[in-house]
Simulated scan of single mutants.
Amino acid sequence: MTTSPVVFIHGLWLHASSWEPWLSLFRERGYEALAPGWPGDPGTVKESREHPESIADRGIDDVVEHYAAIIAELPGRPILIGHSFGGMIAQKLLGMDLAVAAVAIDAAQIKGVLPVPLSALRAALPVFKNPANAHRAVSLTPEQFRYAFGNAISEEESNALHERWSIPAPGKPLFEAASANFNPHSPAKVNTSNQGRGPLLLMTGGQDHTVPESVTRATLKQYRHSTAVTDIMEFPDRAHSLTIDSGWQEIAEAALAWLKNQSL
C-alpha cells in the first residue's frame, strides 16, 4: 500500500469539518488524512456563520492555489477526495500533476460541459438572483438546503445536516463556472487531456439536483482524449448530501475499494 496522504476538499455551503466521519474511517484503514478548509474559512461552523465576510470573494483560482500550497508542504503527492466544487478543485490539481489520484464526488461543472439542467439552476438561484453575490458569501435556508442537498433524505435529516454543517459560501465560484464556456481563460478549465496524470474516479448521485448525473457524464466525455484511467460510479438513489448523510459510509467504502483497485 502507498503511504500517500489523503486530502479532502469540501464544496460550497459545507464546512471542512463535515469530513470528520471520513477522516476517522480513512485513518482506521491506514491512511494519513486531512481536511483543510478553503482560504478564509474559519475553524468552526459557528465562526463561519458569524463571519461570512472572511469567506466572501474567493474564486476558483484562489482555492486551487491554497490547496497547492498545502500539498507542497506534504511529504509526497496526495490522493485527493473532493465533493461538489471540491471535486472540481481536485480535478484541476490532478490535471496539474499535484496528486497521485483523485475522487471527484458530484463534482461541479468544469469548462466544456454544456448541459445546465434546470434543477442545477434552481439550486444555485440563491446566489444567481443577485449579481452582487459574486463578491459576497451567501447562506442557504433549510428549505433551499433541502432542495440542493437533502432531497433524497427525510426533511428531518436534511434540517439536521443543515444545522450541523452548513455555512455561507462565496458566490464567485458559481459565477465563474456559469461563464466558463464563454471565457477562454476560465478558472473552471481542467487539463482533461493530460496523459500522464493519476487515475480519476467520478462519482454521481442519480437524484442530485445540484450536480445532476447528466453533468457528471458530460464531464467524463471531456476526458475522452486522455488514456489515463477515468472511471465513473453512480449511486442512483443518492443526492448531493451523499457525503454527509446517514449513507455516507457506502460512498466512502466505494472510494476505498476503488483506491485499492488502483494499488493506492
Rank of each mutant, 00 (worst) to 15 (best):
T3W: 00
T3R: 12
G11W: 04
W13T: 01
S24V: 14
S24I: 10
F26P: 02
F26Y: 12
R29M: 08
G30A: 07
L34G: 09
L34Y: 09
G37I: 07
W38Y: 14
W38H: 14
P39Q: 10
P39I: 11
P42S: 07
T44R: 11
R58K: 15
R58H: 13
D62S: 12
E65Q: 14
Y67W: 10
A72I: 09
G82R: 03
G87S: 08
I89G: 01
A90E: 01
M96I: 10
I105E: 04
A108R: 02
Q109P: 00
I110K: 00
I110D: 01
K111L: 13
G112C: 02
A120T: 11
L121T: 12
A123M: 05
P126V: 06
N130I: 10
P131H: 03
R136V: 06
A152G: 07
I153M: 09
E155N: 13
H162C: 08
A169P: 11
G171W: 00
S179V: 12
N181I: 07
S186G: 09
K189E: 15
V190S: 00
N194A: 14
G198M: 02
P199E: 06
L200H: 02
L201V: 02
L202I: 13
G206F: 03
D208V: 09
H209R: 13
T210I: 02
T210N: 08
V211D: 04
P212A: 07
A218D: 12
L220F: 15
R224L: 14
R224V: 15
S226Y: 11
T227V: 13
I232C: 13
I244R: 01
D245M: 05
E250V: 08
A252E: 00
A254N: 06
K260Y: 09
N261C: 11
L264N: 01
